Simulated scan of single mutants.
Amino acid sequence: MKRYCLALDLKDDPALIAEYEAHHQAIWPEVRASIRESGIVQMELYRLGNRLFMIMETRDDFSFEQKAVMDENNPVVQEWEGLMWKYQQALPTAKPGEKWVLMKKIFDMQDSE
């Protein structure tokens, strides 16, 4: 099992943030299925202000590249991503077109003992 942590910003608008959270209380079944089929076992989102933090637990064979290909070929996922972009904005450090940015792990208590 692997763990990945990613960050993204939402547009700093309380009404849009509330809508975004409401969408995540009822994720489309096809999107949930696509997440699982890509090898993601568990996913959690956290928010502080307009900053989002995602924790993903994946199978060992998970690949961001493979997930991207799957997403590109899934019209429902593309529709969901288009809808979510209404609420999201790239981090200042993101590359052009990049949404979620992989975070660098800098501490693990288990590794430091």
Score class of each variant (00 low, 15 high):
H23Q: 07
T93W: 15
A18E: 01
Q78W: 03
F62E: 07
P92F: 12
L83F: 01
A22N: 01
R32N: 06
R51S: 08
L10N: 02
D13A: 04
I35V: 13
M1C: 14
M56D: 07
G49W: 08
Q25W: 01
E72P: 00
K86M: 06
S63G: 01
I55Q: 11
W85A: 14
P29Q: 14
D108N: 04
P75E: 10
Q88T: 01
L91S: 07
D111T: 08
K2A: 15
V31K: 04
L6P: 05
V69E: 13
R47Q: 12
M109V: 11
L10R: 02
W80N: 11
E79P: 00
D111M: 11
G39N: 12
I17T: 02
P92Q: 11
Q66F: 10
R36A: 15
P96W: 09
Q88A: 04
E57Q: 13
T58H: 14
P29H: 14
A90M: 05
R36S: 15
R51D: 05
D60F: 12
N74H: 06
V69H: 03
K2V: 15
P75G: 09
P75S: 14
M109T: 06
A7S: 14
H24C: 03
P29T: 12
R51L: 15
I17H: 01
K86I: 02
S63L: 09
K67E: 12
M54G: 11
M103K: 01
V41G: 05
A26G: 03
R47Y: 11
G49P: 00
A7P: 00
E57K: 09
L52I: 08
D61Y: 14
E57W: 03
A94W: 08
D12V: 07
F53K: 02
E81H: 02
E57R: 09
S34D: 01
N50K: 02
W100E: 04
A90Q: 05
D60Q: 13
L16C: 10
V77S: 04
I55Y: 06
Q66I: 11
